[in-house]
């Protein structure tokens, strides 16, 4: 069944979009990620204008993260103070991101920046996760346990000034790395249409040494508010959020996520991380191929003014 998207101004097959939302939602529930880095390229590949795809996915992430936040909130597994600091930084990052997005869009270099960023971030994070998960699986097979971290062990992050106390996370750390993390991920999220959960979770665990039980809820809350801000900023600067497209993706996504979450409970943590690493890497490779292989069509056209803008 075809449905007309009022902002993208094209007709799409409703079930194809719904299915994409569902499939990405399934993976997002399975791995505990937003899934924006998969959904945005999928939408662009299926003919949605890139600007509309990026902006609309931020709205979809608001929906998928809000159901997670509610669940963690009920269990009290959210460090609100940490989330607030991350959030303030995130909003600043988003604003810079939306501003840059508009400039790049007018310069015609948006696609290249998006592709390059995907290759860099997905490649780096995918490789790190792959190495880490293979190591974990190997250790499990050979039976040697991970060397336990000594209590009170510090890294360079803990030597920075402007310290702040976070009771729920049992942390007393400098706000500088937290602000950097929040704004960096807010910025990338707005430019690339990703929530950044797959960057935020490892950063909070390994850099800030936050307890794992609090990390996912806190990260989801930060993502929820940052993406809500990104949605409003996109609406105001680029006007490319398609509410019909967002709604189709949301409904497919939240249903898929529930099934993914159930499936995820049956797999081991290291197996999940290995699968996610392979997924992240393959999306990165797909973008790298586009940049490196001689294209079939050298030309592209973009409407700059007049009808339909």
């Amino acid at each position: 069944m075809q449905i007309y998207l009022p902002i993208a101004e094209i007709s799409v097959n409703m079930f194809v979009i719904f299915g994409m939302g569902g499939a990405v939602g399934f993976l997002s529930g399975l791995f505990g990620i937003g899934g924006g880095f998969l959904l945005t390229p999928l939408l662009i590949f299926s003919g949605i204008p890139p600007a509309v795809a990026v902006a609309t996915v931020t709205t979809q992430i608001v929906a998928s993260s809000s159901s997670g936040v509610l669940a963690y909130w009920r269990r009290g597994a959210i460090d609100t103070k940490m989330a607030t600091v991350l959030l303030i930084a995130g909003i600043v990052g988003s604003a810079i991101g939306a501003w840059l997005f508009k400039i790049l869009q007018s310069l015609g270099q948006l696609d290249v920046v998006i592709s390059l960023s995907y290759v860099t971030f997905l490649g780096a994070i995918g490789s790190l996760m792959l190495v880490e998960s293979i190591g974990a699986i190997r250790r499990r097979r050979t039976g040697t346990g991970r060397v336990a971290r000594l209590p009170g062990q510090h890294n360079w992050i803990h030597g920075l000034p402007f310290k702040m106390r976070f009771r729920q996370s049992k942390l007393y750390v400098s706000v500088i790395p937290i602000l950097a993390l929040g704004s960096g991920i807010g910025f990338l999220g707005t430019v690339l249409g990703i929530g950044g959960g797959f960057m935020m979770v490892p950063a909070l665990i390994y850099l800030l040494r936050m307890p794992t039980s609090i990390v996912v809820g806190t990260s989801l809350m930060q993502i929820l508010f940052t993406m809500a801000a990104a949605t409003i900023l996109h609406a105001m600067t680029t006007q490319t959020i398609d509410i019909v497209l967002a709604l189709l993706l949301m409904v497919g996504g939240v249903i898929g996520a529930q099934f993914g979450a159930r499936m995820g409970q049956k797999l081991r943590g290291d197996q999940l991380r290995l699968l996610l690493a392979l997924l992240v890497l393959s999306v990165g490779v797909r973008f790298a191929v586009d940049l490196l292989v001689t294209p079939d069509e050298f030309f592209s056209i973009a409407v700059k003014g007049g009808a339909g803008t």
């Binding site: 608001v62 159901s67 509610l70 809500a228 409003i232 967002a246 709604l247 949301m250 939240v254 249903i255």
Partner: peptide, 12 residues
Amino acid sequence: AVITAVFTGWLA
């Protein structure tokens, strides 16, 4: 758009 998204997430 944000309200719609939060509502959908909550409903799910």
